[in-house]
Design a protein around this nucleic acid. Sequence first.
DNA 1: TTGACGACCTAACGGTCGTTAGGTATACTC
DNA 2: GAGTATACCTAACGACCGTTAGGTCGTCAA
Lengths: 218, 218
Amino acid sequence: MPRTTDLSPRQRETLEWVKNFIQEHGMPPTVREIGDAFGIKSSSVFDLLKALERKGYMRRGELGARSLIIENLSAPDESGCAEIPVVGRIPAGQPIEAIEHDCGTVAVSKDVLRGGDAFALKVEGNSMVEAGVLDGDYVIVRKQETADDGDIVVALIENEATLKRLYRESGGVRLEPANRNMAPIHVTSGEFKIQGKLVSVVRIMTTGGSVEKPLGGQ
Amino acid sequence: MPRTTDLSPRQRETLEWVKNFIQEHGMPPTVREIGDAFGIKSSSVFDLLKALERKGYMRRGELGARSLIIENLSAPDESGCAEIPVVGRIPAGQPIEAIEHDCGTVAVSKDVLRGGDAFALKVEGNSMVEAGVLDGDYVIVRKQETADDGDIVVALIENEATLKRLYRESGGVRLEPANRNMAPIHVTSGEFKIQGKLVSVVRIMTTGGSVEKPLGGQ
DNA sequence: TTGACGACCTAACGGTCGTTAGGTATACTC
DNA sequence: GAGTATACCTAACGACCGTTAGGTCGTCAA
């Protein structure tokens, strides 16, 4: 099912307006204030709000009036970015939860996280080069235990963490690298667990240098 | 003068509680929420609020519900990240300074900028795929007019902006794409200017999808 | 052709909102 | 004792709140 999980123009417009309102007034708008701004009725706004909530862009608080919560800016002048801890390297060989190395942080826009919990890993190796993930890149991973076909996930196979593209197969899953020199992994039994899904890639060039490892020939 | 212009204990207590509420919920409380917290009625709270307003500790906004405004309430922004404006697309065909499109922002760690001025561009096209820069990626560019051999730069050739790897040649420069299907550009004369140097790449996956354009065959 | 969305609508519900009016009691100062 | 401020109360107003139910119209994919 080809779900356009992304936002429609109207939804995006509404979300932007709400963010702006919060920025400006220090509190979220009421449903009818949104409606007035767009010249539509409160029930129509409610539809939009439900759509935005379903898609994870906002949620409803437990307070009565004005209980809209947009994850990345609950307070007036909080910045729209978060610092994600880098918890290790991949391939790493341990479940994420067990890793405690503090390897610094990477900044990302909060709205790529959608309020979910996330971590970052430094990529080692070239198994995903053809998807534009190079050795040394940081991958931002949102914690979740399920994923759709074709998603790039961090998976744990018998205590070995790996970054691959996920495909379902009869009786198991296929984990496919984005590198034609490497073979896909078929998992039919044993310990297999999805740790999270890749939501962003960040590359930081070192000073004076350029990208360390261009793809090169062939 | 019998006027204790200062706050009474009850008023101070109330003010503190309201500040706390805002900090915690990202919006001011309703009159009755304050009353519930202290076990008093809304009209009693209203008296307190009027006193606090008269003494200049808060004021009433023009919005309906929750329109309390406490002047000096803002959290200092100590985060180590910055939001870089996305000023357009590349190839774009205009000097950066001339572009005014507001296309949102991208978050990066402040230390990748090293204090310099920076901007972001959304990449269009595949001219740098082999350097791991895909169509749709955001490139963070630090403004500078010089660069070293091998650096990836945003350059302006006769009012056309382009993202290429820079090499010096006798009598000019060579701008080399990272795509073996494209030819390098040799610049020996005419308008040529470096706009800045690529310091970071950020890729944001859209929900439900994965990377749009893996490299594929060849 | 059906069905799922998106983007609106009218109409209404019951509850909560800010606010007002008018009252009681305590305290302190002129 | 009069005057003023604080700190509460009961009772209510009308407006606004979130939310629900049920409908229309268009689009786009299966």
